[in-house]
Amino acid sequence: MRPHRRVHSVVYAGFSSGSLRDRILDAQAKVVITADVGYRAGNEVDLLGITERAVADLDVVEKVVVWRRKGASDEASLGAREVDFDALIASGSVDCPAEEMDSEDPLYILYTSGTTGKPKGVQHVHGGYMVGTYYHFKNFWDLHRLRAAGRRGDDGVPRGRVDYPHPGVFYETIEKYGVNVVFTAPTALRMLMRYGEDYPQQYDLRSLRFLTCAGEPLNPEALRWSYEHICGSGEWGHIVDNWWQTETGGPCLGTTAPCR
Results as ranks from 00 to 15, higher is better:
Thr51Phe: 02
Ala214Phe: 10
Pro3Cys: 02
Glu44Asp: 07
Pro217Phe: 01
Met130Asn: 10
Gly237Pro: 01
Tyr199Pro: 08
Glu100Ser: 15
Arg260Asp: 12
Asp26Tyr: 05
Gly42Met: 02
Lys63Trp: 12
Ile239Trp: 04
Leu48Ile: 07
Val66Pro: 00
Arg6Glu: 07
Tyr12His: 03
Gln123Trp: 02
Ala87Arg: 13
Arg145Glu: 10
Phe183Lys: 11
Tyr12Asp: 10
Asp57Lys: 15
Trp244Gly: 15
Tyr227Lys: 09
Lys176Glu: 04
Pro217Glu: 02
Ser103Pro: 07
Ile109Glu: 03
Leu20Val: 11
Leu48Pro: 02
Val179Gly: 01
Arg5Thr: 10
Gly168Glu: 04
Glu197Gly: 11
Arg206Val: 00
Arg53Thr: 08
Gly178Thr: 03
Leu78Asp: 00
Arg5Ala: 04
Val240Ile: 08
Glu197Tyr: 10
Arg147Glu: 14
Leu58Glu: 00
Cys213Gln: 07
Tyr39Phe: 14
Asp74Val: 02
Ser16Leu: 03
Gly117Arg: 00
Ala41Asn: 14
Gln202Val: 05
Gly18Trp: 07
His229Met: 05
Glu228Thr: 12
Asp154Pro: 01
Phe140Trp: 10
Ala90Trp: 03
Asp155Arg: 15
Gly160Met: 04
Ala257Val: 08
Asn180Thr: 15
Trp141His: 15
Glu44Gln: 14
His124Asn: 01
Val179Lys: 10
Ser207Thr: 12
Glu104Ile: 10
His229Gly: 08
Arg161Ser: 15
Met101Phe: 08
Ala148Asn: 12
Ala80Asp: 06
Val169Cys: 04
Gly42Tyr: 06
Asp59Lys: 14
Asp204Ser: 09
Leu47Val: 04
Asp155Ala: 13
Val131Thr: 08
Ala41Gly: 05
Arg68Pro: 03
Thr246Asn: 14
His238Cys: 10
Asp46Val: 14
Asp142Met: 12
Ala188Ile: 03
Arg5Cys: 11
Thr173Ser: 06
Gly117Trp: 03
Glu82Phe: 00
Asp59Ala: 15
Trp225Val: 04
Ile89Glu: 10
Leu146Tyr: 02
Asp26Leu: 11
Tyr171Pro: 07
Arg209Asp: 11
Arg209Gln: 11
Leu110Glu: 03
Pro106Gly: 05
Asp155Ser: 13
Pro3Arg: 10
Leu107His: 07
Arg68Leu: 04
Leu58Phe: 00
His144Pro: 10
Tyr195Asn: 09
Ala80His: 05
Val131Asn: 09
Thr173Tyr: 00
Leu48Ser: 06
Ala188Glu: 06
His229Gln: 07
Val83Ser: 00
Trp243His: 15
Val45Cys: 11
Gly79Thr: 01
Arg194Gly: 08
Arg151Val: 14
Glu99Tyr: 05
Pro165Cys: 08
Thr116Ser: 10
Ala56Arg: 09
Pro251Cys: 02
Asp198Asn: 09
